[in-house]
Simulated scan of single mutants.
Amino acid sequence: MVAGLQGKRAAAGGRWRLVGLLLARPVGWGSDRGSGVVWVVGFMAVVWVVAVTAMTVGSVRAARHRADAAADLAALAGAARVAEGRAAACRAAEAIAAKSGGRLSACGVRGRVVEISVTVVLKVPIATDALRVSSRARAGPVGTEGVF
Rank of each mutant, 00 (worst) to 15 (best):
A75P: 02
A130W: 00
L73P: 01
E145H: 12
L21I: 02
A130M: 10
G146V: 05
A54S: 11
A98F: 03
L18Y: 02
R81P: 01
L76M: 12
V120P: 00
V2L: 13
A67P: 00
R136K: 10
A12L: 13
V120W: 06
A67G: 01
W16G: 05
A10H: 06
L104F: 00
A74I: 07
V46A: 15
A137R: 03
V118F: 00
V121S: 13
V60Q: 11
F148K: 02
V57Q: 08
M1G: 11
C107P: 07
P26Q: 01
D72Q: 06
V27K: 07
V133S: 05
W16C: 05
A93I: 03
V118K: 10
R15F: 00
V121P: 02
R33N: 12
S134G: 15
D129S: 15
K99R: 10
G7Y: 02
V38A: 15
G108I: 00
R17L: 14
R86M: 11
G42R: 06
G101W: 07
V50P: 01
G30F: 04
C90D: 11
A74C: 08
A69M: 13
V60W: 04
L131V: 08
A88Q: 10
V41N: 07
R25N: 08
S35K: 07
P141S: 12
S100T: 03
A62P: 01
V52C: 13
R25S: 07
G7S: 11
F148I: 00
G7N: 05
M44E: 10
R136L: 02
G111R: 02
K8E: 15
A45D: 10
I126P: 02
E115I: 00
R91H: 10
V142W: 06
R33P: 01
G4P: 00
D129N: 09
V147T: 07
R86W: 07
V40S: 13
G7F: 03
D68I: 00
V38C: 10
S105K: 03
A63N: 06
A106C: 08
T128G: 14
G58A: 14
R110V: 02
L21R: 12
A97M: 04
A75R: 07
S35N: 11
S117K: 09
G7L: 06
E145S: 15
G85K: 06
A54L: 10
V38M: 14
V57W: 10
G42H: 06
G14K: 05
G58P: 01
A106K: 12
S134Y: 02
P125L: 09
L22F: 05
R136M: 04
A106F: 05
P125G: 04
A77T: 05
A87K: 02
